[in-house]
């Protein structure tokens, strides 16, 4: 029996949020999603979640790279340097398919790199997404 997965999505484009939700729905994943519109908002949310039980603690983070105020790479830096969240599973979800961008976040320790758009006829994006789901399921089973 699948457990509900708690997802923190850090994304400034609401359309992309809806896209992710739609994909998860189509894959029949049970999830709860909290959205932060940039890195700063996400960090603020994580601080609250660390202190109060009424806030959902994310099992996984979907992180966009290109955002205002605090971008994805800066957020990764901040998270990896905090004691509480340094082991958080983070998936980068971005439009950029550039080698440099992949390498940059890989060095910051991400669990997966998903290239938008999330299309079922775009195998690479969906494969990464499936991988993400797999990782979450494995975690759920434990």
């Amino acid at each position: 029996m699948d457990k509900v997965i708690n997802i923190l999505m850090i994304e400034d484009d609401s359309l992309d949020v809806r896209d992710a939700q739609r994909t998860l729905d189509k894959m029949s994943v049970l999830y709860k999603m909290q959205v932060a519109r940039n890195g700063e908002e996400a960090l603020a949310y994580l601080r609250e979640a660390g202190e109060s039980a009424s806030f959902m603690r994310p099992d996984i983070v979907l992180l966009d790279l290109n955002m205002p105020k605090m971008n994805g790479a800066e957020f990764l830096h901040a998270v990896r340097n905090s004691d509480q969240w340094k082991d958080l599973k983070i998936f980068v979800i971005t439009t950029s398919d550039e080698k440099e961008d992949r390498q940059k976040v890989k060095d910051l320790g991400v669990s997966g790199y998903i290239v938008k758009p999330l299309k079922f006829n775009n195998p690479s994006s969906i494969d990464s997404f499936n991988l993400m789901i797999d990782i979450m399921n494995i975690k759920n089973r434990i």
Binding site: D13, L15, D16, D19, R22, N66, T95, S96, K116, P117, K119
Partner: peptide
């Protein structure tokens, strides 16, 4: 080109939906 891509992809998403 990256910034242009984003809205285009949005349109594409909606059309796909």
């Amino acid at each position: 080109s990256h910034d242009l891509k984003a809205p285009l992809r949005g349109i594409d998403n909606v059309v796909t939906w």
